[in-house]
Write a protein that binds this DNA or RNA. Structure first.
Lengths: 246, 246
DNA sequence: GAGGCGGTGACAGGTTCCCGAAAGGGTTTC
DNA sequence: GAAACCCTTTCGGGAACCTGTCACCGCCTC
């Protein structure tokens, strides 16, 4: 089932209409708070834990529909936590958080069971998108919620990462894709450069806000080139996307 | 739920009909008083605090629907206050106040959870508008309150910053937009130049009052040009906006 | 008809935005 | 392991745009 959130976007709901529940496990408070805020904003119900023991306990009574799990916890190994989680909740999908340089064989095979992972530092759009994918595929949310965003004659498929305008396929780089996804998930709403930076770039990105301008210009070249423009600047406010015919 | 206030404007209310509650936190008394007055005028119930400790205490018993939080407090770091606030009130949206030149990395990630910020010096219209947006989106107020102001055949969308008259789209600059928003939120009421200056321009604006006349003339050119005028002068009193056919 | 108020053109200064160029880092290919 | 390639980011110039001041004129009020 999908419905329209207070934000005006469609959100995932369980078949019974109650909000999706997500458990966030990380030992860094700043990370759990960042994630909790972002995921709550999706309309999901969030609990967090700071270590493996707490994670198992919380999982037992909270019965989440998905888990975000840092592989690096103070009290026990990520794989151990995973094992115990699986005993409690055999079918719950898990999104792993790993350090960028964490050896790949530690996480090799983890996605085999339908789980997924992202490396730190991550962007919130990425985490939200992967989590949505996991929940959708797990069947915890209604299947009718599909993965295609449509704004005017522009479509973006979150599953296949395919983008097309007026039937014509468009190739985007990873960053361009995430930027466009964020815009399209908030159509007709002005998004400030700060908001865009906060959602699309990694939380530790220290660079200039003008990467946003640059990537907007890339998107325009690929999406608006020679057509009625869909990406609009609101000077002093931000950017927004809307169907061309209006 | 929306209702009509004594001032004749529609205002946000909680689902149970009680007024929205807002906590204002700033160490400068002049700022908390300025904001308290402006927000009370919106029909909201206001409490204020001058430091982080007071903020947490007040939040605990006042249970606000939104918080205005200066990032620069005497006793503790803004992020610390935020963390403790979140523990008390996980879902309350926060509007941050930051110095214009406060480096962007201090506020990085803050908009991610759906929170927002304005830089000092701010205009009251801006603060009120953002706060309304936050409260609306948080679901604390009734969903029916939407983001579109309508006066006659003139509409203004606070989300997309779109303005149109008789279906025809009109492009406004940021200042023009805030001025029109203020007029449209007070239709059929004369607003003095002093009131307009106080609400639409920053509280430290030192310039001539004739910027108001200037911007009124800009608005007329864009909104009333070649049409039945909606913006009217009340000589010696101020300006007002009303539907053309009356 | 004098004085005050309001409207608007012209303009300067500042800000914001766009995008070319190029560097740095990572990945793929051979 | 080197070369080639792609992606991301920084830098910076130039253009476009926005804001507010000043000056002048016209209209309203008394």
């Amino acid at each position: 089932m999908t419905t329209t959130s207070p934000q005006g976007r469609t959100e995932l709901l369980r078949p019974d209409g109650s909000p999706v529940r997500v458990l966030v496990v990380d030992d860094e408070l700043s990370i759990t708070e960042l994630l909790s805020m972002a995921l709550r904003y999706e309309g999901w119900q969030i609990r967090s834990a700071g270590d493996g023991t707490g994670a198992i306990q919380t999982a037992r009574e909270f019965r989440p529909d998905a888990v975000v799990l840092d592989m690096m916890l103070p009290d026990m190994d990520g794989l151990t936590v995973l094992g115990r989680l699986r005993r409690e909740l055999p079918d719950v999908p898990v999104l792993f958080l790993t350090a960028k340089d964490a050896v790949e064989d530690r996480i090799a095979g983890l996605t085999a069971g339908g789980d997924d992972y992202v490396t730190k530092p991550f962007s919130l759009e990425e985490v939200v998108a992967r989590l949505r994918g996991l929940i959708r595929r797990s069947g915890a949310a209604d299947r009718r919620s599909d993965s295609v965003l449509v704004v005017g004659d522009l479509t973006l498929d979150e599953d296949s990462h395919e983008v097309s305008r007026a039937g014509e396929s468009i190739h985007l780089t990873a960053t361009e894709f995430e930027l466009l996804r964020f815009l399209m998930r908030n159509p007709r709403r002005v998004l400030s450069k700060a908001q865009i930076l906060d959602r699309v770039w990694s939380y530790d990105f220290g660079g200039q806000a003008n990467v946003v301008e640059l990537y907007i210009s890339y998107l325009r070249r690929k999406i608006d080139a020679g057509r009625e423009p869909m990406i609009h600047t609101r000077r002093g406010a931000g950017y927004l996307i809307k169907p061309a015919a209006s």
